[in-house]
Nucleic acid binder design. Structure first.
Lengths: 247, 247
DNA sequence: CCAAAAGTGTTCCACTTACACCCATGA
DNA sequence: TCATGGGTGTAAGTGGAACACTTTTGG
């Protein structure tokens, strides 16, 4: 195993999902075992990640990790920072665990961090089929993770907010057909602000690449909302080199 | 020498400077020698960069390189991308040169790219004191460089433009005392657009952290312009968590 | 008919844009 | 006195922000 990995560089992915109400992050369990006693010492959480393979491109490594943990291909991935503090992995037990887990002697791992945006309805079927257990954890309820993963997550959220304000990435977190209210909730939850719903609708519906369907919401006990979809190609055509509307 | 470097990770710096008229980039010469004949085979240009040292943090490596090549400390540095294509260094002669130059066997170098903004009037005194020759090259006149350095430069320029539109980084390229016209030229040259000078002045002078001095321009054969300075602390105080004016 | 969320218009203000001339200085 | 760039004001249009009620549906 060790021969195929580059022991100096890893990638970590902050996988965001949105369940129409809350922003969630996919975290995976790490189990630390006492080998002699064959006994579980502790279980904690981390971001999905991996050392890169030898001669592997970073984007490839990120896609690979994402597929390993969610089963999804072709999802939105953005590299947003690099973490290189030599003390980022300092705990003796962590170094030991890495050694056992990878078969590699670790000295200083630089981690390139990505965030990705997935549609929860597509991702959830895969959640149970993992060897390593993964959980969707509410962004407001993140535990202490291993290494510097809390810091990575915090910075991912800042990067996501910045991108959400200027680029049409919110649609990556919603199913293809969505309501304006769902999109508004997404903006409100991620940015942590309240938006005036009349103004939000006006602004959104002015964008020609947000296209109403004949279809309506189903199974709600109130007036069903119109469903819309986001036409990315049209967006690209209209906005060649220009700005997204900003919130 | 080889023992102190990490052979997998390098940093490259795109150092921007502005001479009141043109945007320039600091490039350094690479000389390829035929060792047997002790003869210079060719000279070409590259971005200043270096392998990182073992257990060295990336920001530290970038500052180190910058100081090596410009003599400057504490200058504006921003990490903007990572280049990891395994074919980014593919030329046999380049691999050979790297080996001779670093004493290290190179397999796959991932390069973390920074751009930095320097005040030309402060940087120029150091230009001549370098062991490796460095040149300020006009952004419109960049030759073919080695490796993927042209691609790195192109992406740095895109990143700089994005940042210039939303953050007060232009001041890093000007001396402490500057005229509004100089700042406008900077925006025009970097963004590649024309700006209305009445509107530009109005917008700028509305910002309270751009402070007029009693002093005027000297030695010009026309009405001397008022000098201003940028009060970064005041900017931070005013704009806690908010937006810079956008151009 | 009640509860729940969808959907809709107008006014005010701030900001952007377009546009042309006089002023202060050094040579 | 001329050449050069500095410095200034106004009007029209655009976009954002604030604000409350009616409509449609399921239960």
């Amino acid at each position: 195993m060790s021969i195929s990995y580059n022991p100096h560089i890893s990638i970590d992915c902050v996988v965001f999902g949105f369940d129409y109400k809350e922003l969630k992050v996919l975290l995976v369990e790490r189990e630390v075992w006492d080998k002699k006693k064959n006994k579980l010492i502790k279980k904690d959480l981390k971001l999905p990640g991996s050392l890169i393979r030898k001669r592997e491109e970073l984007d490839h490594a990120a896609s690979r990790v994402l597929q390993e943990f969610t089963g999804l291909k072709n999802i939105y991935l953005k590299q947003f920072d690099v973490f290189s503090n030599p003390k980022r992995i300092h705990n003796a037990a962590d170094i030991q665990w890495l050694h056992e887990h990878t078969g590699i002697e670790i000295e200083h791992i630089i981690s390139v961090a990505y965030y990705s945006l997935v549609k929860l309805d597509e991702a959830s079927p895969y959640e149970n089929s993992l060897k390593t257990k993964a959980h969707w954890v509410n962004i407001n309820n993140i535990p202490k993770m291993i290494f510097d993963h809390n810091e990575i997550l915090d910075k991912a959220l800042v990067a996501l907010r910045n991108e959400l304000r200027t680029k049409p990435v919110g649609f990556e977190l919603l199913p293809k057909k969505f309501t304006i209210r769902q999109l508004q909730n997404l903006y409100e939850v991620i940015l942590g602000i309240n938006l005036d719903n009349r103004n939000f609708r006006k602004k959104l519906l002015k964008q020609k690449y947000i296209i109403p369907l004949e279809e309506k919401e189903q199974l709600v006990n109130h007036k069903p909302a119109t469903l819309y979809y986001y036409d990315q190609k049209l967006y690209n055509k209209i906005n060649e080199g220009n700005q997204f509307f900003s919130i």
